[in-house]
Amino acid sequence: MPEISVIIPVYNRERYIETAVASILAQTGVPSLELLVVDDGSTDDSVARVEAIQDPRVRLLRASENGGIAHARNRGIAAARGRYAAFLDSDDIARPDRLARQFAFLERNPSHAAVGAWIGWIDDRGHRLSRIKRKPRRARLIAAERLFRSGIENSTAMARRDILAAYPHDESLVVGSDYDLWARVARDHDVANLPHLLVDRRQHDAQATAENVSRDRRFRCRIFAWQLDELCIEHSEDDRIRHYRLRRFNKAGDAPDAEYLDWAEDWLQRLRAANQRANCYPEPEFSRLLSLFWASACVHAQSRTHGLRRLAGSSLSSALPAGLWQGWSQRRRLPRHRVVLPASSS
């Protein structure tokens, strides 16, 4: 039986699927593995391209219709035979040392349910970009962040298969089922990230549309809702939408007005007080994180002067120095190390 099962869901990714598969088959220093390519009703040449790969480690699970990525991932987990299961998206590329590093970590740390990694970006042709997404390394900060964002990039994740089987993806979530999964896992188990670039994410036009952003907000607000319920804090639909804004000022070029700052200060103070009662998120990491979101809202305010005054005068800011150190120390730049990327498709 294989030690590691790698799950790649695919839906109409004929341009990229062969490169994703090749990056797994080229992994170095790993024990036995199987690769499950889970078709989700593709109508292009994706299935034929996988069928043409002559490697006994590749298993193709076909579907007659599209059931959604959460359903495809659940199918892959149910069919997996390894002690560990790892995910990769069908347009991404795993660096050669990815599985070996993560397998070694989970073998050394039996208390951890899963481990992710940092992620780089490639363009549509497979050329490296300078962009890097750094995730927090340690379990306590990952757990503290789960009310705002996923602590693990799903395409970098490796987990104990029995844990994934106990935490199936919510198939009613059209998008965000991975965020929901890792929020639930991080609530109950230790998870970590390796401070190494182990996966490259492909950037292409289909990923960034106004429709996708609107849909992402709608489903993320559902995930916020169950966490806020567990925190025993009253919340409205407007609160959840405004909460979503807190994590997007850098991405969206958003500039909050004075009324939003009033709401944000009150909301973040309420979150801090609620957590002191309910103890859902680890402290002091959670309060430090709230200070960072407050500082971001103030710095990006329509009136920078007004925002900085609000920042200086708020009790939320008392945790800001520790919050800045916490954020930097978990995401500080890596020492340089040379890796070889598998050949990209043109």
Rank of each mutant, 00 (worst) to 15 (best):
P56R: 07
P2W: 05
I8R: 06
Q27P: 09
E34K: 00
S5H: 07
I77Y: 05
S64C: 01
S46K: 11
I17G: 07
N74S: 04
L61K: 09
L25R: 06
I17T: 10
E65T: 12
E65P: 01
P31M: 10
P9D: 06
Q27T: 11
V10R: 10
A79N: 04
V50D: 02
L36A: 14
I4E: 02
D44Q: 10
P56L: 05
D44S: 11
A52N: 04
I53K: 12
D45V: 09
R49T: 02
E14I: 05
T28Y: 03
D55H: 07
A22W: 01
V37Y: 12
G41E: 13
A52K: 04
A72K: 07
H71V: 15
N74E: 00
Q27A: 14
R59E: 13
V21L: 07
N66H: 15
I77M: 00
P56T: 04
G29W: 05
I53Q: 07
E18V: 14
I77W: 04
S64F: 02
A72N: 04
A70C: 10
T43G: 13
I7T: 13
V10T: 15
G68T: 01
G76N: 02
Y11C: 11
A20V: 13
R15L: 15
S64M: 02
A78K: 08
L33N: 05
R73G: 00
I24T: 11
A70S: 14
A70G: 14
A79F: 03
G29C: 05
R49W: 00
E51Y: 00
A48P: 01
P2F: 05
E18C: 14
S42T: 08
Q54P: 00
D44E: 06
V10S: 15
D55I: 01
G76C: 03
D44N: 10
P9L: 12
L60E: 06
A26G: 13
Y16K: 00
G41K: 07
P31V: 04
P56W: 09
V38E: 03
E34N: 10
S23V: 07
V50L: 00
G29L: 05
Y11T: 03
I69A: 11
I24P: 11
I4G: 03
V58N: 06
T28M: 10
R59C: 09
V58P: 05
Y11D: 04
A20L: 12
N66D: 00
V10Q: 13
I69Y: 08
R57M: 04
P56S: 13
E51R: 15
S32Q: 12
G67M: 09
